[in-house]
Amino acid sequence: MLDVRSLERRWIKYKIKAYFPYIAGVFLIIIMLISLPIIWLDAEKVSEIKKAPSLSIHTANQTSTLADSNKEESTVLEPSMEFVKTFETAVPEPAIPSTPPAVSKSIPQSVPVTKVLSVPDSSTIKPPPKAPTPSTIVTPSDKQVILNHNNESKIDIESVERRFKETSNPNLGLFIARYYYDHGNYADAYNFALKTNGINNKIDESWIIFSKSLMKLGKVEQAKKTLQLYIGESNSDSARALLDSIERGTFK
């Protein structure tokens, strides 16, 4: 005679065994579906953290230099009218070419200018070791600055800025822009490159720093547009190379 109860138990075991691979498969799929977005979000966070240092340094500089407030939102590019105003009131009108090229006219319209950030307290900061571009005209005072720079002596960036305000020397403006760019302060690099371009719109490196700062500030389209306009005006090889690297996605 059959032991039906025992058979029923064996049948349940058999069904569990038979369905186990399917149950395990479904369970795995569910786990994967749940974990994939989490992994994806984590990866995004990591990439954001990786990007963050340049900005955080930038904001840290700002916060350390800003006397009263922690205006973190200053990283957002806005027209730096205050900067321009302060600059204009402090210095006499620079010798801008009588007929400014189309680039200098179009850029301010298409490219928003950053809010003026107070100049960092750089009494302890050394300027970056950077050679001047051969295209720039070197005056005696510039020579002094470059010499100091080459000798890696301490440079009071504030005094350079003061001199720039007084003389409106585009080489000083380029120096300051380069200094800020090398130190990751892309908003100030952008501001001084813009001012330098306003004084002399034929300095290659100034336009390059201007566009690179835009790139670093995440304004890719504006950077590209600026470079395209400048290339159209100057036929600059270095500007073209930079534009190519941006378009290929190899710009770092």
């Binding site: 039906v4 058979l7 064996r10």
Partner: peptide, 16 residues
């Protein structure tokens, strides 16, 4: 079907 499978277990056609 359950009883067919139970019979198969009993006859050894299914190893459970």
């Amino acid at each position: 079907s359950k009883w067919i499978e139970m019979a198969a277990i009993h006859t050894g056609l299914i190893h459970a």
